[in-house]
Structures are given as structure tokens and as C-alpha cells.
Simulated assay, not measured.
Amino acid sequence: MSKVPMTVAGEQRLRDELARLKTEDRPRVIAAIAEAREHGDLKENAEYHAAREQQGFIEGRIQEIEGKLSNAQVIDVSSMSNNGKVIFGATVDLINLDTDQEVRYQIVGEDEADIKAGKISVTSPIARSLVGKEEDDIVVVAAPGGEVEYEISQVHYL
């Protein structure tokens, strides 16, 4: 499997979730399974089956996170010198040339994307059109409502 780009914050969030799953959630479910077993007949024991199902979800998520972390290529843009070029991890201030509305996006990995927080996936149409461009460049983005033109007003390596 190829390396997947990830920001430092994205990696830390995954590591925190993994630690919580292993140290809090997994032991809690194991205790719930043990308690449900004490109730007797497992065939008709809903608590037991619910706890086993939850254990399956937790173990699956642990494997998923460990896989993502093993294939992650962590990129720390704050340690790079800012040359005004849009790269993975950069935060970009854009001006919509039709409406003069300003927006700010950080280009992040697919798992970190959260449009409400201003984080867009590196595979999104807008990020793909921005990567490699520089400050003051005009970028045309193919949006569902038609093409939108943006001017890159500033690039930050935060």
C-alpha cells in the first residue's frame, strides 16, 4: 500500500483515539462481556451479544487506525520555509472573484477533511486545482454549480 499524506495534527488525533480505544474502551467492553457471562445462558443474553458486537467494532477500529498510521506520511509544513506555493498541509486564503467573498482552507489528508473547520481533502477538486499554484495566481475550480474562479491571496505554512 502506498503512503498516505497526513498532517501532524491528524496523526495526533489518530494516536489519541487509538490510545483511548486500547486503554479505556477495550477494557470496559471486556468487563461488560465478563459481567454478561455471569448472567448464565449466552444464547438469549442480549447484554452479552451487544458487548461482543461492540468489542468487534472496537477491534476493527483499532486495526483500521493502526493500518492508517503504518501507511501515513506525516508532513509538517510549519517546519518548511514558506515560498508562497500551495502544498499539502498549507492554509490558503482565497478570494472568490465573482462574489469577492474570502475563504480560508487547509489542505489535509482524506481522513482529516472537515469542511466546517475549513479543512479540505487533498483529493477534492478545489485542493487539486490549488496544489502547485502560488500567491496571486487565479485558479478555476469545477464546482457542481459551474466553474468558480478564485484568486490565491495568501499561503500560510501553519
Rank of each mutant, 00 (worst) to 15 (best):
residue 7 T to K: 06
residue 47 E to D: 15
residue 138 I to N: 14
residue 62 I to H: 06
residue 63 Q to C: 11
residue 138 I to M: 10
residue 50 A to V: 07
residue 137 D to P: 04
residue 48 Y to E: 05
residue 27 P to V: 04
residue 57 F to L: 15
residue 88 F to K: 13
residue 127 A to T: 02
residue 65 I to G: 07
residue 47 E to A: 14
residue 71 N to A: 15
residue 112 E to V: 02
residue 19 A to Q: 15
residue 2 S to P: 03
residue 152 I to R: 06
residue 99 T to H: 08
residue 154 Q to H: 04
residue 125 P to Q: 12
residue 81 S to Y: 09
residue 76 D to N: 13
residue 91 T to W: 03
residue 60 G to F: 03
residue 2 S to V: 04
residue 83 N to S: 14
residue 13 R to D: 09
residue 118 G to A: 03
residue 29 V to H: 06
residue 101 Q to M: 12
residue 4 V to I: 11
residue 144 P to W: 09
residue 137 D to S: 07
residue 58 I to M: 13
residue 29 V to Y: 05
residue 36 A to H: 04
residue 41 D to V: 00
residue 31 A to N: 14
residue 114 D to V: 04
residue 11 E to I: 03
residue 154 Q to W: 01
residue 134 E to T: 02
residue 139 V to G: 06
residue 122 V to R: 08
residue 111 D to P: 04
residue 61 R to Y: 02
residue 115 I to L: 13
residue 17 E to K: 15
residue 90 A to S: 15
residue 94 L to K: 03
residue 154 Q to I: 01
residue 49 H to E: 12
residue 113 A to I: 01
residue 12 Q to D: 10
residue 104 R to E: 02
residue 26 R to D: 00
residue 81 S to M: 09
residue 106 Q to A: 11
residue 89 G to H: 03
residue 59 E to R: 13
residue 26 R to T: 03
residue 101 Q to I: 05
residue 25 D to K: 12
residue 78 S to R: 13
residue 80 M to Q: 14
residue 64 E to A: 14
residue 117 A to R: 15
residue 12 Q to G: 10
residue 25 D to S: 13
residue 139 V to S: 09
residue 100 D to F: 07
residue 127 A to Q: 02
residue 57 F to A: 15
residue 51 A to E: 02
residue 110 E to C: 09
residue 79 S to N: 13
residue 66 E to P: 06
residue 14 L to P: 02
residue 120 I to N: 06
residue 11 E to W: 07
residue 52 R to W: 00
residue 66 E to N: 09
residue 102 E to W: 04
residue 44 E to F: 04
residue 143 A to P: 02
residue 118 G to F: 01
residue 127 A to C: 14
residue 72 A to C: 12
residue 137 D to L: 01
residue 64 E to R: 15
residue 38 E to W: 06
residue 14 L to N: 08
residue 9 A to L: 13
residue 93 D to Q: 12
residue 136 D to K: 12
residue 33 I to F: 03
residue 22 K to L: 09
residue 131 V to D: 09
residue 92 V to H: 05
residue 94 L to Q: 04
residue 46 A to T: 09
residue 68 K to H: 01
residue 96 N to P: 07
residue 150 Y to I: 05
residue 95 I to C: 10
residue 53 E to G: 12
residue 30 I to E: 09
residue 87 I to M: 13
residue 136 D to N: 15
residue 59 E to Q: 11
residue 5 P to E: 08
residue 108 V to Q: 06
residue 40 G to Q: 12
residue 144 P to A: 14
residue 93 D to I: 05
residue 90 A to W: 00
residue 71 N to Y: 10
residue 127 A to E: 00
residue 115 I to S: 12
residue 19 A to H: 11
residue 69 L to P: 05
residue 116 K to Q: 08
residue 77 V to F: 08
residue 2 S to H: 13
residue 34 A to K: 02
residue 110 E to R: 01
residue 57 F to W: 15
residue 11 E to F: 03
residue 85 K to Q: 06
residue 87 I to L: 14
residue 91 T to M: 10
residue 46 A to Y: 10
residue 60 G to I: 00
residue 40 G to A: 10
residue 144 P to H: 12
residue 37 R to F: 01
residue 142 A to H: 10
residue 85 K to I: 02
residue 86 V to W: 03
residue 98 D to C: 07
residue 24 E to V: 07
residue 153 S to E: 03
residue 157 Y to H: 07
residue 104 R to H: 05
residue 58 I to Y: 05
residue 90 A to G: 08
residue 48 Y to W: 11
residue 110 E to S: 10
residue 49 H to I: 09
residue 123 T to E: 12
residue 92 V to T: 00
residue 84 G to M: 01
residue 140 V to L: 13
